[in-house]
Amino acid sequence: MTGTMTLRSFLALCLLPLALAVTAFFLLPMAKLIAVGASGKTGIAAYAAILLDARYRGTLINTVLLAAATTAATLVIATVAGLFLQRHRFPGRAVLVALLTFPLAFPGVVVGFMIILLAGRQGLIGEITLRLIGEKEVWAYSIQGLFLGYLYFSIPRVILTIMAAVEKLDPSLEEAARALGAGPLAVLRDVILPALRPAFIASGAIAFATAMGAFGTAFTLATNIDVLPMLIYTEFTLSANVATAAALSVGLGLVAWAILALARSVAGNAVAAAG
């Protein structure tokens, strides 16, 4: 039926449905979002308000700080665990790796519930501290809970990236350093960590962008946590302030996209996919 069709027109035909779907359900809606963001009482100034309005700016700074703290803590934790797991073979190692990567597919809402079970009003940590110091520690419904939640979903992703990067390290460099008299700490500082830099940048950027935009965890823990996705949610559903919600969404999308683009220009093509 397509016997006479040239390769050129066949390739165009292959691309057409994809191009139509992406235009209809992504590009046009995004253009609409940007337009609606400038359609409020203040017009295009709504975008400037993200930085100029004290409340929005405070929330933005909060969100960036939380995402940065999550990224830093995750990188440290995942590097220690990832280096260890990739460098040692011991019974039960495969099970341990499987356990560490098991939460990879948990949606944010489930992660929020995990944090409630761990540090909520009837949580494990509260039970333990009640017995130890006679006081119930409850962290779940605040920014600390959100930090724990973001750690929970970024650790598995980052560990996988770091383990893959450690596997590709050239062992002869470390042997050379050791032969020259470098101790284990010096080898770690001067050989291993610098070689892992692209993996740090790639997985760190993904962790940062994901933490900036994550909504489900905050939604489960509490609606009054002061981060950007929750602000968008309250502006849209509770205040019916559609223009502001749209402007904030565009701002949030730009920040997340810029972080990933920046990391990719520094670390190469390994950076993608904030799940």
Binding site: A19, P29, L33, G213, F215, F236, G253, A256, W257, L260
Partner: peptide, 23 residues
């Protein structure tokens, strides 16, 4: 084109949903 298709990975889901809802 590949870059454009991959953009939804970098943009928070909430923003994509709001865009679809507005459109």
């Amino acid at each position: 084109i590949e870059e454009i298709i991959t953009l939804p990975l970098a943009i928070p889901g909430l923003a994509i949903a709001l865009a679809l809802l507005l459109a």
